[in-house]
Simulated assay, not measured.
Amino acid sequence: MMVVFQNKIIYMPSVPPFSRSEKVSDYARQCQPVVWTEHDLRAADNTKIKLLEGTIGVTADSKPRGHVVVLYFQGNASSLPPRLPYLSSILKTATNAQPGGKQYTIVALSYRGFWKSKGTPSQAGIELDVDATLNWVLTRYDPDRTRIVVWGQSIGAGAATVGLANLLRDGEDGLRRVSGLLLETPFVDLKAMLIGLYPQKFLPYRYLTPFLRSTWDSKSALQTIGKVKPNLKVLMLEAGDDEIVPRGQGAVLENICKKEGMAVDRKVVPGALHTEVLIKGQGRNHVVMFLQSI
């Protein structure tokens, strides 16, 4: 049963209840002055997906010196609207710290089957969603004044790394435009997660790994990325009290980045549970400082 229904176990768009009926307008006041705009997009298989684009209006006299666009991939549960106040706080802090400096934008993807996006979630399908979103960002923003950062949280970290590696199927130009990679509470792959969570050999879970249809193999993806973009800046954020991702996962990925020559920095946010990195001031500060360094 676990093998048959694994996608329903891994991807939980309806947790907590009513997640798919959340509205951006319900969080608008908490997000001010950041304004979030909805965009419709279609993946390669014609599945309709939803993007949210958040930015602070640029006045005529502010003349920002550059533009940092952050592409955000969420974790495996809930929807985007409840995350918007936290993402908005990143935009506000980064902008206020550099008045008249850079402009910051966050583009957040709602995977298929999540929130207003159509379809049913699976790794194969979400990879198509990520491909479409990356291409949308690369096409939408001026390459001469824009720096792109890809940010993934939990399973979204897998979507981020695998998505960047997949860019190479169309050549190296797309990946070379990416300046930063932010991995929040990442894991090596889902196989390593199973073994880490259930190390006891008498339990059946570790023996299910050959049947996984979703792997989100960040280790292999980072190795592929590093061959083409060894100067990529990488920030890994771990939750100090993470109850989901076993200890040591981030360290493995950090070593992979170092072997490939990438400029990687791994930070632990003390006292944070798996979904609390952005709730903690220290976690938000790490994100803001990383974006300002791009």
Rank of each mutant, 00 (worst) to 15 (best):
F211E: 12
R213C: 11
G248F: 06
A221N: 12
G226Q: 06
G248Y: 09
M236Q: 14
Q223A: 05
F202W: 15
P246N: 04
I225W: 11
L208M: 13
Q249C: 01
K201C: 01
L190D: 05
L232I: 05
L222A: 02
Y198Q: 06
K191W: 00
R206F: 02
K191V: 13
T209D: 08
L203R: 00
A251S: 12
D189A: 06
P199M: 03
K229P: 05
F187C: 03
Y207H: 12
P199F: 01
I225R: 13
P199R: 01
W216N: 02
E243D: 14
A192C: 13
V245M: 09
L197W: 05
T209R: 12
I244A: 11
A221W: 04
F187I: 02
A192M: 06
S220H: 03
L208T: 14
Y207N: 00
K227V: 15
L222N: 02
L212D: 01
K219W: 02
L237H: 10
R247W: 08
G196C: 12
M236Y: 03
S218I: 04
R213Y: 01
L222D: 02
Y198P: 00
D242F: 01
K219E: 13
K227I: 12
S214K: 06
Y205S: 03
R247L: 08
I244T: 13
L222F: 04
W216A: 12
L194R: 00
Q223H: 13
I225P: 04
P204S: 00
V245F: 08
Q249F: 06
D242K: 02
T215C: 06
L194G: 09
K227W: 04
D241P: 00
A221P: 15
K227A: 15
V234F: 06
L208D: 04
V245S: 12
K229W: 11
K233Q: 14
M193L: 15
G250W: 05
R213E: 13
R247E: 12
L235W: 08
L197H: 07
K229G: 07
G226I: 02
D217C: 10
D189V: 01
L194V: 13
F202I: 05
L203D: 02
A192Y: 07
N231T: 15
W216L: 08
R247G: 10
Y205Q: 14
G250K: 08
E243P: 10
M236A: 09
R213D: 14
K229A: 11
L203K: 01
M236N: 01
D189G: 05
W216Y: 15
M193C: 10
Q223D: 11
P204F: 01
P230T: 05
L203H: 00
T224Q: 15
S214V: 02
K201H: 00
Y207L: 08
M193V: 14
